[in-house]
């Protein structure tokens, strides 16, 4: 009951926000120069053919009408057609979004492991070498351009050491892709029982996941460090120490109390990475949703861009709602 009311409240805020996002991105991509009809038909098209296609696509209508038309199509699950792939954007995104999601999810897991371990260790010993290392790591991880770091990893592990496969997609060219079920290559290959393909999928994931994971561990580490330090110096922790409770337990209790702010930054990072992984996708020819959107912008193909913005906004909102729900269920202080 409580949860249902909470969800309704959230939706009341979310829907206008989604319409706002669609409106702003619609106006933005509509003002990108380049006529889709001309681009679709090529340089040899007759003016009549172009005019015909324009009216067929609704491009001769006023802008507000085009927007309403787009909203109407959206309501029917139609996200438009990409002129580059000549396929419905929804189909393209259903195929590509899991690729991005798989990459981002594994990267986030790595970032959580590295970030939380370093953060907790440095909070326990801020003046020691771990604390210093963590400080420098936080600053330098934020300073590295991910696309360049990816290139350096490719150079070391592919060009020099030959440990990693060529940065060309999610599988070796010689390996047959499994039947898509979840869209996660690592899961689909296992479902198909194809272990060679599974190995290939994992090998292709290693470098991009290292790139994104190591760079994005920075913010998680900083948040863990600062909230753990605050909890460890709190009266509750001091009292526990005075009572002679072992340090391990004190740390565990402090972590339990620091968890909400850490989970918040992780959820923000998850949403951010969907769009933030674009450059790494491009470097590894990943064929994900972000790369699809960037190709769209660069080639005046507007519907993929709109579709991607919508998908990633909805995904972020879903993550936030789930995280909030978990809080409501877990933390007795928030539920009232």
């Amino acid at each position: 009951m409580r949860v249902a009311r909470y969800l309704l409240q959230r939706l009341a805020f979310v829907l206008p926000q989604l319409v706002g996002i669609v409106l702003v991105s619609f106006l933005l991509v509509k003002s990108i120069p380049g006529d889709p009809a001309v681009l679709m038909l090529g340089p040899t098209a007759t003016p009549d053919a172009i005019a015909g296609l324009r009216s067929q696509m609704g491009l001769d209508q006023p802008l507000y009408w085009q927007f309403l038309l787009y909203l109407d199509h959206l309501a029917h699950g139609d996200l438009g057609t990409s002129w580059q792939t000549t396929r419905p954007v929804l189909e393209d995104l259903i195929q590509r979004f899991p690729a991005t999601l798989e990459l981002v999810t594994y990267s986030l897991i790595l970032a959580i492991l590295v970030g939380m371990a370093l953060g907790i260790a440095s909070a326990l010993n801020p003046k020691g070498w771990v604390g210093r290392l963590a400080d420098v790591y936080g600053l330098s991880a934020g300073a590295l351009p991910d696309f360049w770091f990816a290139l350096v990893l490719i150079f070391v592990f592919y060009t020099l050491a030959h440990w990693a496969p060529a940065p060309l997609g999610r599988l070796d060219i010689s390996v047959l892709a499994p039947q898509p079920v979840t869209g996660f290559m690592t899961i689909d290959t296992l479902l198909a029982g194809d272990f060679e393909a599974f190995r290939s999928a994992v090998a292709h994931l290693v470098l991009p996941v290292l790139t994104l994971g190591l760079i994005n561990a920075g913010p998680i580490m900083k948040m863990t460090q600062s909230s753990m330090e605050k909890m460890l110096t709190s009266d509750a922790s001091r009292y526990e120490e005075l009572c002679g409770i072992p340090q391990r337990l004190v740390t565990r209790h402090a972590l339990r109390n620091a968890l909400p702010s850490i989970v918040t930054i992780i959820s923000v990072l998850y949403g951010y990475l969907i769009g933030g992984a674009v450059l790494v996708e491009i470097v590894f020819s990943w064929g994900g949703a972000g790369q699809y959107a960037v190709q769209g912008v660069l080639n005046s193909d507007i519907y993929p861009v709109l579709g991607f913005v919508l998908f990633s906004a909805i995904f972020s909102l879903l993550v936030y709602i789930i995280v909030d729900l978990v809080y409501v269920l877990v933390d007795p202080r928030i539920s009232h």
Partner: peptide
Amino acid sequence: MRAADVLQAFPVFVFAIALVAALG
């Protein structure tokens, strides 16, 4: 503030490229 919410809900990089593409 709500306009800022909308602006921040965008994927930063895609938004920036779209802006550059739109304005030249």
